[in-house]
Every structure is written in structure tokens, then in C-alpha cells.
Amino acid sequence: MVAASFKFNIDGIEVEATEGQSVIEACDEAGIYIPRLCHHPELPPSGNCRVCTCKINGRHSAACVTPAAHGMVIENDTPQLTSDRRAVIEMLFVEGNHPCPYCVASGDCELQALGYRLGMVAPTQPYQWPERKIDATHPDIYLDHDRCILCSRCIRASRMEDGKTVFGFEGRGIAMRLNVDAQGGLGETQMAAIDKAASVCPVACIVIKRHNYQVPNGSRRFDKTPIGSDIEAKRTRRQS
């Protein structure tokens, strides 16, 4: 049975969606980019980061967990929403340790790329400089807690895709951190370099050893085109 289709409006653009799609899924198909960080198209949505928050029928809602509905009126690309999203990205930068110039993920980091896209020049909040450790106990993967932004992608991937429970959160608020299900560190877990959880990290928290710099600086995903360009290209192709 074919799912019913309907239309809604985002920033004055009419978008066709199908029943069961979220707002962000429908907009992705239509070639309209909504900034996001915790969302991954191959994982169940979680609504952790709130970067995808839009004004939907007059109320602020996360586009990744809001079902698309007929007649919705959505604001996405506005100065206020850009400012709000930039503030979220700034807080993620100052709450962790992100030395972009020499980070192994520079040019391939979604946090860094969003900072560029949203016009973040320098954080306006004071840096927290937390003391965090690197877990290098695994033979093929290291876990750098300095970079973790608590997006939960690795948790969802490990549970839903890999059938494991390698990752989880512990603590609350500013004390929340990513944890693994073994006292001796990642090396004592069932984690493997081929696991989905090893490839979905948007920053450089989970890094596969001996793979660093295989793609040189200047040739990485966001070195030449802004984040979201792949989605927006769909709309450009449809209009041509």
C-alpha cells in the first residue's frame, strides 16, 4: 500500500511529503537543508542537540522528531534561528576541547562545518577547559572524550545497528559523559572497527587508528563545499 502524500510550506517553499516522514526527512528529499548535528539518516532520531529546531506552526520544535503533516507552515532559514543555532554550536565548542587546526577530523567535522556555515567567528562564552581522558585501550579505535558532544549517535548505532551495548551516558547536566560497558575501557568491549558505531561520530571522538590523514587536508568533505551542500544540490538539479 502506497503511503499517502501531502504538502507543507517551509520558508515559502512548498514541499511534498509522505505519511510517516519527519520534517527533516521530507526536507532532505526536497533539497532543503535544515542544520543538524545529532541526526543521522541511518539512525533513529533522538532530538538531542536541538540544532534542527524550526518554528513550526508558530512553535519551536526539533525537525528530526516532528512528524510532517499537511498544511504545516515552517520557518527554518531566519536570522533568529541562525542566531539560536550558532549559540548552541558555540556552547558545544566551549564545553569541550576542540583544537580544530590540528584535529584529525578538521575538514571532515560536522561541528566545525556548522560553525562555518552559521557564521561563528569565535565563541562568546568562556571556555570550560574540562579535564578529559583519551581511551586508547582498543587495538583499532581510540576514544577521545575531549571531542565528545554527547550526540548519542554511537549509542544508537551500537544498539540498533550493531546489536551491542558498547556505549551509554552517565551523569547529568554539565557532568554528563560518554561511557563504555567495561571497566577496563573500550578495549574490553565488543566494539569492532567495522561496527556502525565506529563510523557515525560527527566529530573526532571515535577515531579508527591508522586511518588518520588518509584524505589530506584540503580534500575532505567540507574543505570545498559547506555542510548541507549535498542536500541543497537535489533542489538545484530539480530546478534545472
Rank of each mutant, 00 (worst) to 15 (best):
P67K: 07
A198F: 00
V166Q: 06
G107P: 11
Q128S: 12
Q214I: 08
P67L: 07
I13T: 13
R177E: 14
R238N: 13
L178W: 00
E42R: 13
W129D: 12
Q190D: 15
G58S: 06
V65R: 04
K133H: 07
K209A: 06
V203I: 09
A17L: 05
V215R: 11
P226N: 03
M191V: 05
D108G: 08
E232K: 13
M72K: 02
R172M: 10
A175P: 01
A204C: 14
G184L: 11
H60V: 02
R172W: 08
R220S: 09
E25C: 10
R177Y: 05
G187C: 05
E75A: 01
A193S: 07
A198H: 00
E170Y: 13
G173C: 04
E188R: 12
G12D: 10
D230Y: 14
V15T: 00
V88T: 11
M72S: 02
E16C: 01
N57F: 00
P41D: 09
T137G: 01
K164I: 10
R221K: 14
S219F: 14
R159S: 14
G107E: 13
G58T: 07
P101L: 05
C100P: 03
L81F: 05
R156D: 10
Y102V: 14
D84P: 03
Y102W: 09
L111F: 08
G47V: 04
F167A: 02
D77M: 10
H138D: 07
L118Y: 07
G58V: 06
Y102H: 12
L186P: 00
D230C: 07
V215P: 01
E95C: 06
R159N: 15
P139N: 10
V88S: 03
S152Y: 09
A175I: 04
E170F: 08
G47F: 05
R159Y: 13
I134G: 03
V207F: 02
K164N: 11
R50D: 08
A198Y: 02
A136R: 09
I34V: 14
C148Y: 02
V23F: 04
I24R: 05
N9I: 15
F93V: 11
E42H: 14
I155Y: 12
Y102C: 05
G20Q: 06
A3G: 06
C27E: 07
Q239W: 12
Y142N: 04
R86S: 04
P202Q: 01
F167Y: 11
M176F: 01
Q128A: 15
G20E: 07
D223I: 09
Y213K: 13
P35D: 12
A197N: 06
C52I: 11
Q128E: 15
V121D: 14
P35V: 10
H138K: 03
I227E: 08
M120V: 12
C54Q: 04
N76Q: 01
I10P: 02
T236Q: 15
S240A: 15
Q190A: 15
A157S: 08
